[in-house]
Amino acid sequence: MFWSFLLLAGLFVVTGFLSKMFHAQQASLSRHWAAQGEARLLSGDAAAAIEDYRSALVYEPDDRQNEFRLAQALAAAGRTGEAQAYLVRLLELSPGNGEINRELGRLAVRAGLEPEAIDYYHGAINGAWSDHPRQQRIAAREELSSFLLNAGDTTRAEDELLALAATVPDDDTTDVLQTAGLFARAGKLDGALREYQIVIARDPGNPAALAGAGTCAFQIGDFRAAEDYLSRAQREGDRNAAVSDMLEKIRAAAAPPKRGAKK
């Protein structure tokens, strides 16, 4: 009896030691395979990344980040159904997760499922993000707007763009320009011009904003403003042929007719 208890105590200690080593090794292997998967996914080898992430999940089955990355790898490899299965499960576990909603939105876009895509993207826009939530929400709304424009649903796209314009801060030049571009694609030239003007007001020498504003003004028919924006854009280094072309047309239209020219 005494020896039994002594043996039990000894076995307890040994098992505790072994299990600590075991868990440490499992975590280490999971990290190793996840890192390899990350590198392969970034290099575009999605098929190999899938295997790596699956290996990582063998050792840490509940690592949601790796599951998410596996889903991304599956999606990148074109295995949409499998990716969706993972993402849906992850979304059930954390329903308000913006990242998962956006990935599901992207899969829905790929499948051409507009209502699902809108739902998921709205989930992403209103969801929780661990890093840079504001930028991520703006990016998600930009993706949604772009998808709606591609799908020809301009009415919904306009709604999203108005919401986007209200959300994007004036000092975020890249996103304001992106919003302006989307407005222009939607045919909402007033909105686009307004966004370009926001950038120009903060950065008068921004060639992209000047060119965009000039193009919008040209299409609206405000040639004076268009010439001003486009010529400033050229001065700031814009070498876009379309800008030169528009400028030429405006100047040609504004120039007095040559003497002796036949009517």
């Binding site: 040994v14 072994l18 299990s19 075991f22 295997e51 790596d52 290996s55 063998v58």
Partner: peptide, 19 residues
Amino acid sequence: VCFRICIEWTSILLLGSGI
């Protein structure tokens, strides 16, 4: 517990840690 750990280690040692 030791048995399960032992199986896992044997598998990693012999077949590698990848799937």
